[in-house]
Computed example of a mutant assay.
Amino acid sequence: MTQKNFLATLLLCLFVGGFGVHRFYVGKIGTGLLMFFTFGGLGIWTLIDFIMIAIGKFTDKEGHLIKA
């Protein structure tokens, strides 16, 4: 079970997801940096992450699902 909050992750992705902040929050520093420098894959990567978080399929750096 992850210690990361579902709602916090979802809101970070929604409001600052283009900068990869939600990925930094869950410990995925490498992909967070990639998102930062590509502006969330020009928004596409951010949208995919948002959907994955919303349906409960997004994981933290240890592979634990972040669910509501």
Rank of each mutant, 00 (worst) to 15 (best):
5 N>W: 06
49 D>S: 00
37 F>E: 08
43 G>K: 09
30 G>W: 04
13 C>T: 08
20 G>N: 04
49 D>W: 03
63 G>E: 03
56 G>L: 09
54 A>V: 11
14 L>S: 13
14 L>D: 02
36 F>M: 15
32 G>M: 00
49 D>K: 11
57 K>S: 08
6 F>I: 12
61 K>D: 14
41 G>F: 09
55 I>K: 10
34 L>F: 12
26 V>C: 05
15 F>N: 02
21 V>F: 10
16 V>N: 00
55 I>R: 13
18 G>C: 12
4 K>A: 07
62 E>S: 15
26 V>S: 09
46 T>H: 05
33 L>F: 14
42 L>A: 12
36 F>C: 14
68 A>E: 11
38 T>S: 15
30 G>L: 10
57 K>A: 12
23 R>Q: 05
9 T>D: 00
10 L>Y: 04
48 I>K: 15
63 G>P: 04
51 I>F: 10
30 G>N: 06
22 H>T: 00
13 C>Y: 02
27 G>N: 04
9 T>G: 02
39 F>V: 15
63 G>W: 09
39 F>H: 09
64 H>N: 15
13 C>W: 00
11 L>T: 09
44 I>F: 12
54 A>E: 00
5 N>H: 07
27 G>Q: 05
60 D>S: 10
56 G>P: 06
62 E>L: 09
50 F>N: 01
17 G>Y: 07
28 K>R: 14
64 H>F: 13
43 G>S: 08
34 L>W: 15
31 T>K: 12
9 T>Y: 01
63 G>D: 04
13 C>I: 09
38 T>N: 03
60 D>G: 15
24 F>I: 07
51 I>M: 08
25 Y>K: 07
61 K>G: 04
2 T>M: 12
36 F>Q: 11
54 A>C: 13
41 G>S: 10
41 G>E: 07
44 I>Y: 06
43 G>Q: 04
7 L>D: 10
55 I>V: 15
45 W>R: 03
52 M>A: 14
26 V>N: 02
45 W>Q: 05
55 I>A: 05
11 L>M: 12
16 V>F: 11
18 G>M: 10
61 K>I: 09
64 H>E: 11
56 G>Y: 11
37 F>W: 04
